[in-house]
């Protein structure tokens, strides 16, 4: 089982400092990379070149964009709800950092390792909709409000299939997982512990994708919806609501929303990797390499979907969640529970 920063650095202050620095660095680099990657993927799909001017194949383009965003004026519209408006980007952004720190990306080292990791990830995921609603409500803009309302309804609806589909994995872990040697002792595998989930898959040599294909599909669709990615990007549907909840945000405030969106994508892909694709498990290459390869493959799939499909309508989106995904995931959970009990 991975050692955490606290195991390595006995002083909690140093551990937290190093942890935050590491997470922020990874997230920033990831966002810069993802934006460039998304542009390149979209360009590739659309038979274009994408950014080519700044750096080798435009690799420095997003850096230049970030500098531009930092230098931009922060326009504050009239009639806003000041506390809500100003807090919103932070409330959207902070949970992302917290959630990212939970990920066990290697079998040897992790930033934290807690027995309620999965619960925490979903909890931090839920925070985002609060921030989005704060921003939408505080902006004093009807488009922003509409986007915020859509976002809240969507996030709450899709959290249910998201959690239900991951619960079937938790059940499997409880049934299959045995024990891990930790610091000379032995502990029982915990279905809510992200490291244990990966560990069980590595031990058994089978990824949960093979045992739970339906759960994976449901989980992946729900992640798309949770991160407001197309075809579920209706909270910011640019052809309908201008920019949805962040219509009135400019400069780095908008940058934070953007940052959070890409980081959420990243985290969603990481959780999917841990739950279904065996996390760090893989031959030859070291653990972290496998972990990030799988994660970025899922990120690529998200982009692929975005640049292929049109957007759903709001009612269709809700029908899809409540009429298809929720019943399917409940069914899947029941069948899993039944099989786990029998065998």
């Amino acid at each position: 089982m991975p050692r955490t920063l606290l195991d390595i650095f006995p002083n909690p202050l140093i551990a937290v400092g190093i942890g935050i620095t590491a997470v922020m660095t990874v997230l920033s680099v990831n966002t810069l990379f993802c934006i460039w990657f998304e542009r390149k993927v979209s360009a590739w799909i659309q038979l274009r070149m994408g950014p080519m001017e700044v750096g080798f194949h435009g690799t420095m383009q997003t850096v230049a964009d970030m500098v531009k965003l930092l230098g931009k004026q922060l326009v504050t519209p009239k009639g806003i709800d000041k506390p809500l408006y100003h807090l919103a980007p932070i409330v959207v952004f902070a949970p992302v950092v917290a959630a990212a720190s939970l990920m066990p990306f290697s079998e040897s080292v992790a930033i934290t390792n807690t027995n309620i990791g999965l619960v925490l990830v979903f909890m931090f995921g839920g925070f985002a909709s609060i921030g989005i609603f704060m921003g939408g409500w505080g902006s004093n803009n009807k488009y922003a409000l509409l986007g915020a309302m859509r976002s809240v309804a969507q996030n709450i609806s899709y959290e249910i299939p998201l959690i239900l589909s991951s619960l079937s994995v938790v059940l499997l872990v409880g049934a299959m997982g045995r024990e891990f040697a930790v610091d000379g002792g032995v502990i029982q595998a915990n279905g809510m512990n992200l490291a244990h989930i990966t560990g069980v898959q590595a031990q058994r040599g089978v990824w949960f994708l093979l045992l739970q294909p339906l759960a994976f599909i449901i989980f992946f669709i729900a992640v798309l919806a949770e991160t407001n990615r197309a075809p579920f990007d209706i909270p910011e549907a640019e052809s309908e609501l201008i920019a949805g909840f962040h219509t009135e945000y400019s400069g780095m405030r908008f940058g934070l929303f953007f940052f959070a969106e890409f980081s959420n994508m990243f985290i969603g892909a990481m959780v999917a990797t841990i739950l279904f694709l065996g996390g760090w498990d893989g031959p030859v290459l070291p653990g972290p390499a496998w972990f990030f390869l799988k994660t970025y493959f899922l990120v690529f799939c998200m982009m692929w979907i975005r640049w292929t499909y049109p957007r759903l309508r709001f009612d269709q989106l809700m029908t899809f969640a409540w009429g298809i995904l929720v019943p399917l995931s409940i069914l899947n959970l029941l069948i899993t529970a039944f099989l786990v009990k029998v065998f």
Partner: peptide
């Protein structure tokens, strides 16, 4: 039209 309902890629194909 496709852009309006959220599909961005066909737009670039058509313009090509």
């Amino acid at each position: 039209f496709l852009l309006d309902i959220g599909g961005i890629t066909p737009f670039l194909y058509c313009f090509d």
